[in-house]
């Protein structure tokens, strides 16, 4: 009986061929996996799998190159925008995207981020902001919220001592080299669909040489936050979004 329902017209979801069949190492409920999927679906839908080069970060997404079925380069910590800059300039008819966490993009790699954005490199930058260093075991990130507990702020982030959470997306939105800057999330199906439309836009912009398209995804890290996936999403909505509100920061005509 089950065989009878396997028909094209009944298909509601399938794995995009732009994702490999490798089992992802991400924790259950983590936003990295969802974001990978929608980036891959956009590449599939645009028919650009053979003309896309992706740059993986150092962070939980370091192994992104095992999941995206496009040619991939794995950068040093924070340097993905530098690699992407060179790839795009040397292969201008390719679609180039970088994929980075908040430590990668907004701490060690801040200079590369700012300058790639300011030069107006014609690339797509995907930025996963989970407010923590997931990969290294939950240390404080530049984006960690005030009073948020992490392995290196065990009593909560003390602003006077540890400085302020950094709104890097607001900064890059000020730069003339960015054409599209948006903040999205992927913790509900509706938000996933919205985020996917934003990522599509961010890739489409490369066709018109408009400059950097920058998509922040406010995400969770249930392992680093020490919460169940459901509780993490709730915490994200109540706390992360209060400081990092969703929506477009810049849409150039």
């Amino acid at each position: 009986m089950s065989k009878d329902i396997i028909k094209p017209e009944n298909l509601v979801y399938r794995r995009t061929p732009v994702l490999t069949k490798n089992t992802m190492h991400y924790c259950p409920g983590c936003g990295h996996g969802t974001t990978h999927r929608i980036v891959a679906e956009v590449i599939e839908e645009m028919g650009i799998q053979e003309q896309t080069i992706g740059i993986a970060p150092v962070g939980c997404a370091v192994l992104a190159y095992n999941y995206f079925e496009v040619d991939m380069q794995e950068a040093a910590h924070g340097r993905a925008p530098a690699l992407a800059t060179a790839v795009k300039r040397l292969k201008p008819d390719f679609f180039v995207f970088s994929y980075q966490g908040d430590g990668d993009l907004a701490a060690i790699g801040t200079a590369e981020t700012i300058h790639a954005c300011n030069r107006g490199e014609n690339i797509t930058m995907i930025f996963i902001n989970n407010g923590i260093y997931g990969m290294t075991g939950g240390q404080m990130a530049p984006t960690t919220l005030e009073d948020m507990k992490t392995a290196t702020s065990p009593y909560g982030r003390d602003i006077a001592m540890m400085g302020n959470p950094l709104k890097i997306t607001e900064i890059v939105a000020q730069l003339p080299g960015t054409c599209y800057v948006t903040r999205q999330a992927v913790y509900t199906p509706a938000l996933v669909r919205k985020c996917k439309r934003a990522i599509r836009q961010a890739f489409e912009n490369q066709k018109e040489n408009k400059g950097v398209s920058f998509v922040e995804v406010v995400s969770n890290c249930n392992s680093g936050w020490k919460m169940t996936p459901v509780a993490a999403n709730q915490w994200l909505e109540e706390n992360m979004l209060a400081f990092y509100p969703l929506g477009d920061l810049k849409v150039s005509k």
Partner: peptide, 11 residues
């Protein structure tokens, strides 16, 4: 120079 060498890496 950090950016330079990583651009070289990408290229």
């Amino acid at each position: 120079e950090v950016a330079s060498i990583n651009m070289v890496y990408g290229g």
